Each structure stands twice: as C-alpha cells, then as structure tokens.
Simulated assay, not measured.
Amino acid sequence: MSFGVTDAMTDWVPTGVDEEVPSAARVYDYLLGGGHNFSADRALAENLLKVLPARDMARLNRQYLDRAVRFLVGEGVTQFLDLGSGIPTVGNVHEVAQKLNPAARVVYVDNESVAVAHSELMLRDNPNAAAIEADMRDPEGILGHERVRGLLDFSRPVALLMVGVVQFIPDTDDPWGIAETFRAALVPGSHFALSAFTWDNAPEGMRAAIEVFKNSRDPIFPRGREEILRMFGDFTLVEPGLVYTPEWRPDRASALADASRSNLYAGVARKN
C-alpha cells in the first residue's frame, strides 16, 4: 500500500493547483492509501492522526459508501449523483453500482481539480459515468449542468450522495438549505445517503481537528446528531436510521466494535 508520492512525481497535477495548500480530497486520498497527494496534504494528515483515528474514520466511511451503494442498487436505483466525490480510489460508486447493474449511471461532482482530473481519466471509456468540477453550494448550477442532465433523468429515481462532505460547509452557507434544494429536485422513490463528522463521540479530538484544518482550503465544521439529522428533511430514514458509519447495515458483527473510532454519523433516507 502506498501512502503518498514524492513531490517530484507530479505529472498528474492539473495546471494551477497550489501544492502548498492542503485539500480535504487529497488528505482523504492519503488516509486511504492513495498516491495523489502532496507533502502539505500528508503533513496535515499526520497532524490529524495525532488527535483522531483518521485512518479508521476514512476506512469506515469508505466501507459505509460501498454498503450504501449496494443497498441502493438492491432497491432498484440506477442513477447516482455523488457530491464531493473526491479523488478516485478502489471502490468508487460507479465500480460498485455497475458491477451489480452495468446500466447504472453515475455523475461525480467535486470542487477539487485533482479529483475531477483523475475521475475524468478513469471514466474516459465509460459512457455511463462522468465527472464535473463544481461546488455543491451551487445546487442549481449542478442540477442544470449539461453533463448531469445528459446522464441522469430526474423524472426517475436518483440516489443523492453526500458522503463525508457536509462538514466542510459552514452554517453561514446553510448546508440544510443546500440539501433541501437537491432533495426537492428528486422524485418519489429517490434516496439520499449522507455521512458527516460529529462532535458527539470525541469532542476534544474534533476541536483539535478544527485547528488542524484551519490552514487548509477546507476548514471543518463538525455537528451534533440533531443538526445532521435535519439534513434529511422530510425524507424517511431506512433502518437502522442515523448511526455511526460501521453501524449502518454492517456486513459482519465484528464491525460494530469500530463504532467508537468512526466519528461520522451515516444514514440513508427515501423520498416517499
């Protein structure tokens, strides 16, 4: 497993990327063992590991995404809009969904140019998946984007994914209103899958993590359970409701022992 690359090996870097400013997408890539990150990202990640079990958090969140996508395909969902999708690693949404249903369609959205560039490379021979560079704080722009409209039919159910991203949106940008705008664009039978950093399990660690992320391009804003629950609006949570990531429909009983190291709530809800 690789935990980063030397800064000399940067042929994959899109023009204009500031390598000195850490980004959440590249930090997450490093924590998951990816190679598309810079020394600044690795330094932030190592500082984060001093205050939180960040590798476990990243791994458990990724495993939750895998289970949620498999559940959604099992519910008959064939369309996915993945907001804040990050840098491609093994087990992307299209890989999981299209393995179960080759006709599944996926659009990835991220505001990090490295993430989008690598997603585009990965998807260049996949007609049922695309990636766009956009900020999820612009729901109208995303929902009206030609590539989104070209792949997803909003007259049919869509799975909206906000997995590990809303903690990067401050209260002043109204993440609840953003989620509501996206949810309103979905027809009955659609689903909304979300996970988010919470204070509830490790308040001191999260306070320290806020300081770690302050000098990155993506400061963090952890929230309590009720604040995260509000993101789902009038959608109906499926069992087991809003729980820590390893507690959401675990594949094995031993995964429940990881709940104390998760520090992210997760849930999937349906529009009736």
Rank of each mutant, 00 (worst) to 15 (best):
V77Q: 01
G35D: 12
D56C: 13
S23G: 14
T15H: 13
Q79F: 05
R62S: 03
E46V: 05
P14V: 10
N37I: 04
A24Y: 01
W12M: 06
L49V: 03
F71C: 10
S85V: 05
G76R: 12
D82N: 11
L81H: 03
A24I: 08
I87V: 15
V27E: 02
I87D: 03
S23K: 08
V21R: 12
T6S: 14
G16Y: 11
G91M: 05
V17R: 10
P22Q: 11
R70I: 04
P22H: 07
K99D: 13
W12K: 07
V5M: 13
A54N: 05
T15I: 13
Y28N: 11
N61K: 04
S23E: 08
R26V: 06
P22R: 01
G86C: 10
T89A: 11
L65E: 01
W12F: 15
L72I: 06
L65W: 05
G74N: 11
V13G: 02
V93M: 02
M57G: 03
G74F: 06
D18H: 12
G4M: 06
A54D: 00
A104D: 05
L81D: 00
M9L: 15
L60Y: 08
R70Q: 14
D11C: 11
F80I: 02
D82K: 02
G16F: 12
P102G: 07
V21H: 09
S39F: 07
G86W: 00
I87C: 06
A104N: 03
L60D: 01
L52A: 08
V13K: 05
L81E: 01
G91E: 08
Q98T: 03
D18Y: 14
L100Q: 14
S39P: 00
R62Q: 07
N92A: 08
D18E: 13
N37G: 07
L81I: 11
L65Q: 06
V90L: 13
M57R: 04
G35L: 08
P14F: 12
T10G: 13
G4C: 10
R55C: 07
Q98W: 03
I87N: 02
A97W: 00
T6K: 14
H36E: 10
K50N: 09
S39K: 13
T15P: 09
E95D: 13
R55E: 12
V106P: 00
V96N: 00
Y28E: 09
M9H: 14
D56W: 12
G35E: 11
V17Y: 10
L31A: 10
P53A: 11
G91D: 10
N92F: 03
T78I: 09
A40Y: 12
D7P: 08
R70N: 08
A68F: 04
G4K: 09
Q63L: 15
R26A: 11
P88C: 09
L83A: 06
R55V: 04
L100C: 12
L52W: 01
Q98L: 03
